[in-house]
């Protein structure tokens, strides 16, 4: 099956000369959830804006559902829903009328039943006749989502959907995303909450300085970061690991005060009991035991810093 979103060699230089995107290539399969992780200023929003038609690319192409977003913009854009990062809403409009407007703007005939379903799903139905300015920040974000869903997009872009929202809305949001996925909607979300990417994404892309540093299946990435380290601190430093303990998973720290043991948290046996028994048998006296998990965050930070290196 051809990818639903195909981004090739996409570059964007702003008028001031700042290069926000430096030749991005990205293919997104239909029905998947892709999380784009990246620090502020990495180019996440520029990438989304360029796909959606809000900014024009300096060079490169974007195809959505096989339609070029420039030469065949109507067909391409009709498939796309966008939930922007900023809460951009007209304060005096009513919830329901602004959502209906979005549907009409995308050329779809009125469908009150669908609008009701969306508003109910987002817990906005009771607020349908309220003015936007009367709503809380979280509610406004729900309105933005409702607007994007009103025209039944096949590809949904969520730009930092949970930035600054409470835990409840974040959970609701994840549920909505899961439901959309069941309906076959392709979802691309940007976030800098790694846990969010972990919770809902199928694939994770890391972007920094206008370049995609990595796009990988979440499960594979999780396997890479599923490693955990156990640090056994000793009361007396030792010079080398006793022969009885020697294994690939075990090493001594630089000053000989601790043994560091790497293991897979998802393994059938972690080997910790055996290790501790052997440490005791070798006559070593423990001072403390610490565990550390290498997280997606570490991988992410490493990648971004590699990107920074000249």
């Amino acid at each position: 099956m051809p990818p639903i979103v195909e981004i090739s060699a996409l570059r964007k230089a702003y008028a001031g000369g700042f290069e926000a995107l430096k030749g991005v290539d990205l293919q997104i399969a239909e029905g998947e959830i892709l999380a784009l992780l990246g620090p502020n200023g990495a180019g996440k929003t520029t990438l989304i804006s360029t796909v959606c038609g809000i900014t024009t690319a300096t060079s490169g192409t974007v195809r959505v559902g096989g339609h070029d977003t420039v030469t065949d913009f109507r067909a391409a854009r009709a498939m796309i829903g966008l939930v922007p990062q900023e809460i951009n809403l007209e304060p005096f409009e009513k919830v329901q009328s602004t959502v209906k407007f979005s549907r009409g703007l995308f050329g779809k005939p009125a469908n009150p039943a669908l609008i009701e379903k969306i508003l109910r799903q987002l817990s906005l139905w009771d607020k349908r006749d309220s003015q936007i300015r009367e709503l809380s920040g979280g509610m406004k974000r729900r309105v933005l989502i409702a607007k994007a869903l009103s025209h039944e997009p096949r590809v949904l872009f969520l730009d930092e959907p949970t930035a600054g929202v409470d835990v409840e809305l974040r959970r609701d949001m994840w549920e909505i995303v899961a439901e959309l996925k069941r309906d076959g909607v392709t979802i691309i979300l940007t976030t800098h909450y790694i846990e969010e990417a972990e919770a809902i994404a199928d694939r994770i892309g890391v972007i920094a300085h206008g370049e995609i540093l990595l796009v990988e299946d979440k499960a594979k990435l999780m396997a890479r970061m599923g490693k955990k380290e156990l640090e056994v601190q000793l009361s007396e430093p030792i010079i080398e690991i006793p022969a009885s303990l020697a294994s690939d998973a075990l090493r001594l720290n630089d000053d000989g005060t601790a043994l560091i043991y790497s293991y897979d948290t998802r393994g059938e046996r972690t080997g910790i009991t055996k290790l501790l028994a052997e440490v005791a048998a070798a006559g070593l006296i423990l001072r403390d035991v610490v565990t550390r998990q290498s997280s997606l965050e570490d991988i992410f930070v490493d990648l971004v810093h590699e990107g920074e290196a000249p």
Binding site: G53, N88, P91, L105
Partner: peptide, 12 residues
């Protein structure tokens, strides 16, 4: 107020 994003991203 920024709502123009919707106009720019719509098939119009």
């Amino acid at each position: 107020i920024g709502t123009i994003f919707e106009l720019l991203s719509a098939p119009v």
